[in-house]
């Protein structure tokens, strides 16, 4: 049994009204603990709906979502499920509850009913993990987008979940902020063994994951390891491959022997090797 499982899940927004939209159609996928997963697709492909289905913010109309064996449809399990899977959303401004940063990071542990000392320990640890400890007594509105998202991540970390979902968490950030978040996420997966599920439309971010799921129009069209990123089916659905892959293709067409690459760094290595 996998850590997170989607079993034939469907979900419709505004069901039974004239504006009904079937966002997710018969989706099945499995995520193991420790995985670094990317879920890619256009806006409107259903990927953000998947994020909310994972921790029971939305309940499937058909099929089942289970986290560590517990079903999200079971109201009594929701608390446990949310202890295990945290979500960092897209808008840095709309996730903070408190006027002081350390109070905001404490929000999660406070909801868990932990002792004040334990909460303090977790808040300090979480803020240090995202390199925002020195800002702990400050207010959110003076921070940059990247900093706010780091605080949001700290807020989720403080709950000590086994998995973290990043729902397009970098799409409203500038390049500096994006890099900050990607570095932290990478570190969490490698060092803390946290299961990371990155929902994104940036193919170069997807290239950093080990397992990739591609969605279009509510359906899963591809899943697998990084090789998925160069599958021709992507182009058929209007998705690009990562730029490094495209350039590699161009070089192969020109007769060069370039191995499997997905990031600019890997490509540079291969080019040097081949010359």
């Amino acid at each position: 049994m996998s850590f997170i499982e989607f079993d034939n899940v469907s979900y419709t927004y505004a069901a039974q009204t004239p504006n009904a939209v079937k966002a997710v159609k018969n989706l099945s996928l499995k995520i193991e603990e420790g995985d670094f997963v990317a879920l890619v697709g256009h806006n409107g492909s259903g990927k953000s709906t998947v994020a909310k289905l994972i921790n029971g913010l939305l309940i499937p109309e058909h099929g089942k979502v289970t986290v560590d064996g517990m079903s999200t449809a079971d109201k009594k399990s929701l608390f446990e499920i949310r202890k295990n899977v945290g979500i960092v959303f897209q808008n840095p401004d709309n996730q903070m509850v408190a006027t002081i940063i350390e109070d905001d990071v404490a929000f999660g542990p406070e909801n868990l009913g932990l002792s004040p000392d334990e909460i303090r320990k977790r808040v300090d640890w979480a803020l240090k993990s995202v390199d925002m400890y020195e800002y702990r007594e400050g207010a959110p509105f003076r921070l940059s987008g990247g900093q706010k998202q780091r605080v949001a991540i700290a807020g989720v970390l403080a709950i000590k979940p086994r998995a973290m979902v990043l729902d397009e968490s970098t799409s409203m950030l500038d390049p500096v902020g994006k890099k900050e978040i990607m570095d932290i996420v990478h570190k969490l997966n490698k060092e803390e063994k946290m299961t990371v599920i990155m929902i994104t439309h940036f193919m170069d971010e997807a290239a950093l994951a080990d397992k990739i799921f591609v969605m279009d129009d509510g359906e899963l069209i591809l899943s697998g390891a990084k090789k998925v990123l160069t599958d021709p089916l992507l182009a058929a659905h209007g998705l690009d491959m990562p730029p490094a892959c495209r350039i590699a293709e161009g070089l192969r067409k020109g007769g060069m022997n370039i191995g499997e690459v997905y990031t600019p760094e890997e490509l540079a290595e291969e080019i040097c090797r081949s010359l």
Partner: peptide
Amino acid sequence: PTPAYIARLL
């Protein structure tokens, strides 16, 4: 931009 970045790495 990615191409220029790769060029630089090279």
